[in-house]
Design a protein around this nucleic acid. Sequence first.
DNA 1: GGTGAATAATTCGCTGGCGAAGTAATATGG
DNA 2: CCATATTACTTCGCCAGCGAATTATTCACC
Lengths: 173, 173
Amino acid sequence: MAQPEDSTDRHVARWRGHWVLETAPYDDTVEAITTRIGAIMRHLREHKKRAATEAGLQDFEYDTLHALMIRDTPGTSSPTALAADLGISPAGMSGRLEGMEKAGFIQRTTDATDRRRLGVEATPAGIEIWREVMARRGQEEDEMLGVLSAHERETLSTLLKRVTLHIEGERNR
Amino acid sequence: MAQPEDSTDRHVARWRGHWVLETAPYDDTVEAITTRIGAIMRHLREHKKRAATEAGLQDFEYDTLHALMIRDTPGTSSPTALAADLGISPAGMSGRLEGMEKAGFIQRTTDATDRRRLGVEATPAGIEIWREVMARRGQEEDEMLGVLSAHERETLSTLLKRVTLHIEGERNR
DNA sequence: GGTGAATAATTCGCTGGCGAAGTAATATGG
DNA sequence: CCATATTACTTCGCCAGCGAATTATTCACC
C-alpha cells in the first residue's frame, strides 16, 4: 500500500510550499492529475518520435501520414482538411506535402470536377512504413498500461471520458 | 448511466473496423485511454497558449518563465539547466534569453567564481505576468476536473500514478 | 604550473512553420 | 452572363529552434 513517490509527488510537495494562489486555493490532486497526464504524454510523444525516426520518418512526416490514415476515408484527404486535423497552417501543409511526395510517402492527385481542389493519398510505401510505426506504438501503449488490470483500465478510461465529454461539450455551447 | 459518446468513442469504433494489428491484438480500452489523454493535453495546451497570449507573452516565453519558476530554486537557474528542463537546445536557449531579457522578463547575471557560467533570473515583471497566466491555468484545471468528485479525482490520480511510476522506473533501469 | 581535456555559452547556416499576399478556379446574384 | 465574392492552394518573407563549430574559461594531472 505504501506507494513510493513519483516525480509528480515531489513536484507537488515542493510547489505547495512556495506557491499559493490568492484567488483560487491550490489543489494538490488537480495539480497532480494534470502533471501526471503531462508526464505520460511526454513519454508517449518521445516514444513515437523515436519509433518514427527508427522507421526512417521524420516526426512530422509520421504525423502527417497518421492524420491521413485515421480519417473516415483512410489514406485520402485534401491539403486543407489535413492541415486542420494537424493544427498547422495551409502554408506549412504545402511544404510538408512537397517533401513527402518527393520521398514517395504520399501523392497529390487532381480533382476532375473542381480544379482548385487537390487530393492527398498515402502511397503503399507510406502506408507500410506508417503501419510499422503504429505497431511499435501499440506495443508501447500496451506495455505502459499493462501495469493496470483490465478492470482498472476500464475505470481509468471511464473517468477520462467524463473529462473529455466535459471539454468537448463546452466547445459546442 | 447511458453515457453519450465522446470523440474517442467514435474514433475507436471507426478504428476497430479497418485496422487490426496482426502482431498485437488491438485493445479498445488502451487506445481509448491514450486518445483521451491526448485530447485532454491538447485542450490544456491550447488554453495555456491562449492565456499566455492574452497576458502578453508568446507561448515559448511563458514556457521559459514557467520552467524557471518551478525549479527547486524558484526564479533562478542557468541557461544549460533551463534548456534541459525545457527540452530545447542550448542554442535555442541563447535566443530565447536574448529576447526575453530585452523584453524585461528575465535577466542574465554573471557568476563571480566561474566566468563561464551565467545565472538566469526572473524579474519582478516576469514573475508577475507568469502568476497571471498561472492563475488562469489553475482555474481552467479546476473547472475541467470539477466534473469529477473529490473521490473520483483521487482515484484518477492514483491510477495515473501507477502508470507514471512504471514509466519513471523504466528509465532508471 | 603548464598543457590538454572538459564545460558553458554563443554564433552560424539551415529547416520547418507561420501569416499575409498572390494565383487560379468556381460560385453567386443582379 | 458578367462582375464580384469565395474557395483552395502556393509563394514569400520572416522567426524560432537545431546541430555543429567557435570562443572563453576552468579543471585535471604529470
